[in-house]
Nucleic acid binder design. Structure first.
Lengths: 248, 248
DNA sequence: TGTATGGTGCTGTCTATACAGGTTGCGTGT
DNA sequence: ACACGCAACCTGTATAGACAGCACCATACA
């Protein structure tokens, strides 16, 4: 295989400087090329030996990067043959990321929101650090009402690198979900669903007793550029449920 | 930490002989000890250096084994401190209809069940009436345990027209999910997820307080012939959560 | 008593090297 | 024309050694 070692090395060097480990930088360079389509499905990757020569690092480091990419499913490796960009497979969505305003209106009710807070913060756990090299996050806290009943508390962190205009939006007329799906179409979603008791603060803004069980949904959404938003939705169990389904 | 290097080395050597890589064998020895409870939650593992000395292998190999165990969530590592057995918490995949026994074993724990009841009943709401022209249903109630902790109450209705042999099965050795997926491969699944408080009976069999919130999953599964089964899964919120994700 | 400071032990990463095991394709001999 | 053998190339694994970053603790100092 003919490799453009020069541009590969350039992209690799460009990610240096901060303390990012070399194997992470290799992973990033390669997965960027896959994500942007520069390396298409089934295409052969440079061999470990070629990457060693091109990037000036040891083979163990290259090996770790490629192995982790293979573990994550981004590439496929075959002993004695080589490494190749994986064929992507479609997965049917179980729970679509739906607009809560639409759902409420579909039930024939009135949807409204109350903005609790909207500001930039210093992130403790830096969820977007890998994508945006920053510790700052935008955070919005919003309560959704169905008619006059609070049905959901939305506590959202947004990546300022990918959505710089977030703080300027008017979330009384459109929801964060609306806005984000316009400016950063999502390519990947991940969910964690739990049954929890609300904190006293959560119970207060939702207008429920603190012993009422709640569904808590933590949802991370990615666009092509990276992790866009992490949201924690808290819904009183007595007022909401999740529905989904899929064929196989 | 005082390490029983002798028995550790013995177990490690015992796994040798076939072509299993050393890092896999280390993982196995360690996860066996975690699974059997010999090393309890939060307990400190031998350091990499101690394992190198005890097993006579290089630190890179030990490091890979421990790193992969940490990636899989079995252990927790902290730079400058050490490696520790992870505090376990059940996580169920949301997308797939998976075998809970497999999940438990994948977490390195022992899965067992307790059969509460298994009988034919007269159906009140006749869920299978459209499919089988009958009012009878088979019903099984089973508690699933992870080690000695109840993690799920499974209350299942089965369509007698599609699964006539259901009552003759031995659900101490295999789960209803196992059996049904063999005899009636599912083509469609639908879910409703809620946060609820358990009834007194549910709390009793799960061994929890009646004010602990639970995830309740109602799942209907269809095969090509029609509605096979309707199951209500009740999981203590403190002991489980659902995870899922999809690409689009 | 409270505050620096340095030592010790831990994990995280990287290098250079080596051997093993598998695949592919070319070339030689029949 | 066919089969075999072998070299070249690939990934998989393992090793010894090194340095860096972090946490904890004991000791020395103010």
């Amino acid at each position: 295989m003919q490799v453009d070692t020069a541009s590969l090395a350039r992209e690799f060097e460009a990610t240096g400087g901060d303390g990012t480990p070399a194997y992470e930088r290799i992973k990033r360079v390669i997965s960027d090329r896959i994500r942007t389509g520069k390396w298409g499905e089934g295409e052969r990757l440079p061999s470990e030996h070629q990457l060693v020569a091109a990037l000036g690092i040891s083979r163990m480091t290259v090996n770790r990067a490629l192995r982790e990419l293979a573990d994550s499913g981004a590439i496929v490796r075959s002993m004695g043959v080589g490494s190749f960009v994986a064929e992507t497979r479609a997965v049917s969505p179980l729970l679509e990321v739906r607009n809560i305003a639409d759902e409420v209106q579909r039930r024939g009710h009135r949807h409204s929101t109350r903005l609790i807070s909207l500001a930039a913060e210093d992130a403790d756990d830096r969820p977007f650090a890998a994508d945006s090299m920053t510790d700052r996050v935008y955070r919005s806290v919003i309560v959704h009402f169905e008619d006059d009943t609070a049905i959901q508390l939305e506590d959202r962190l947004v990546n300022p690198a990918l959505v710089p205009e977030y703080l300027q939006q008017d979330f009384t007329s459109s929801t964060p979900n609306d806005y984000l799906s316009r400016v950063a179409p999502l390519t990947r979603t991940q969910l964690v669903i739990e049954a929890v008791l609300p904190t006293d603060e959560q119970a207060a803004v939702l207008g429920i007793e603190s012993h009422e069980p709640c569904l808590q949904i933590r949802r991370s959404t990615w666009s092509a550029e990276g992790l866009v938003s992490v949201v924690r939705l808290t819904q009183p169990g007595a007022r909401s449920r999740l529905e989904g389904g899929f064929d196989s």
